[in-house]
Computed example of a mutant assay.
Amino acid sequence: MASECRGTERLLCTLRELLTSLSPESRGRAEEILSQGAGAPVPFSVLRELRSLLRERGSSVYLHELLEDSEIHLPVVKLPERNPELVARLEKIKVKLANEEYRRITKNVTNQTNKYGALSELGRQERPVKVVITVFNFFITVAAAFACTYIGSQYIFTESAARVLSSVIVASLVGLAELYVLVRTVEGQLGEM
């Protein structure tokens, strides 16, 4: 709360005029203020008494007009020193709350789910699809080997039977090679389980 203001020249002139009407205590303070000149700190107790005197006399001058260019000084508030035990407790609470927040945020990271279930079950759901894709790939590879051999053998063989026979032989060899690779891959996957 404000306790004093800096007196302007107009305030000091009014104070000088009413000096004799002030109480002895306020008169002593007012004389000190007047001796310091413009800018001297004027306590609010003197201003209250000055206001009451102006009202009694029916003066046309109001206090707010006298204080128009004055500066109000607020006292400096000294904050008490914080208790070290309290500061330590607050720090522990902050750390605890941060850890709880972190756990709350990360609790679903390892157990994430999609619309079909947990993401950890994705591998189990993928295996049947892998088998279908592998079988489809096997048939496509054998058919492609047959077609390539049949078209390419027209430059070697003129008869259609020889071309078909050579194409079946090449497609069978490619099919056996595919089966060998497929068995080795499945055997390796079973060993990892």
Rank of each mutant, 00 (worst) to 15 (best):
H64P: 02
K92M: 09
N137I: 00
E100P: 00
E68L: 15
L11E: 10
A144S: 12
S3K: 09
A161W: 09
L176V: 15
L53R: 05
E56H: 04
Q112F: 05
E91F: 03
Y180L: 13
E91H: 04
L50F: 03
G37R: 09
A30G: 12
T113R: 15
S3E: 07
E187A: 08
A38C: 08
E71Y: 14
R51L: 03
I33H: 05
I151Q: 06
L74E: 10
R184I: 02
L63R: 02
I93G: 00
Y155S: 08
V87H: 01
Y116M: 00
V135T: 12
V131N: 06
Q189N: 10
V131W: 02
P128M: 04
A145K: 05
Y62E: 15
V129R: 11
C148V: 04
S23G: 12
R16E: 15
A143L: 09
V142Q: 06
L63G: 03
Q112E: 10
F136P: 00
N114I: 04
K130Y: 02
A177G: 14
R16V: 04
A2V: 15
H64M: 06
A162N: 07
E56C: 00
E49Y: 00
E31V: 11
L119F: 13
E56Y: 06
A171S: 15
E81H: 14
V131D: 10
V186N: 01
S3A: 05
V129L: 12
V142E: 08
E56S: 03
L165C: 00
E68H: 14
L19A: 08
Y180M: 09
Y155M: 05
R127A: 11
V61I: 15
I133C: 01
E31W: 09
P75W: 05
P41K: 02
R55N: 00
H64A: 11
F136T: 11
G39D: 11
V135H: 11
F139S: 13
K96D: 12
A88Y: 06
I151N: 08
A30T: 11
Y150K: 13
L18F: 03
P43D: 14
L66S: 15
L54C: 06
I133M: 07
V46D: 01
L182H: 05
C13F: 07
S153W: 03
L15V: 07
L122R: 13
T158N: 07
V168R: 02
T14D: 03
T149W: 11
L66T: 12
S45I: 01
G175W: 01
K78A: 15
V174C: 03
L173M: 05
A147W: 15
R27C: 08
P41L: 08
T8D: 04
Y62S: 13
G191Y: 09
V168W: 03
Y155L: 10
C148A: 05
L119H: 08
L63M: 13
I156L: 15
L54K: 07
T113M: 13
E101K: 10
G37W: 04
L15W: 14
E100H: 07
V170L: 07
F138L: 11
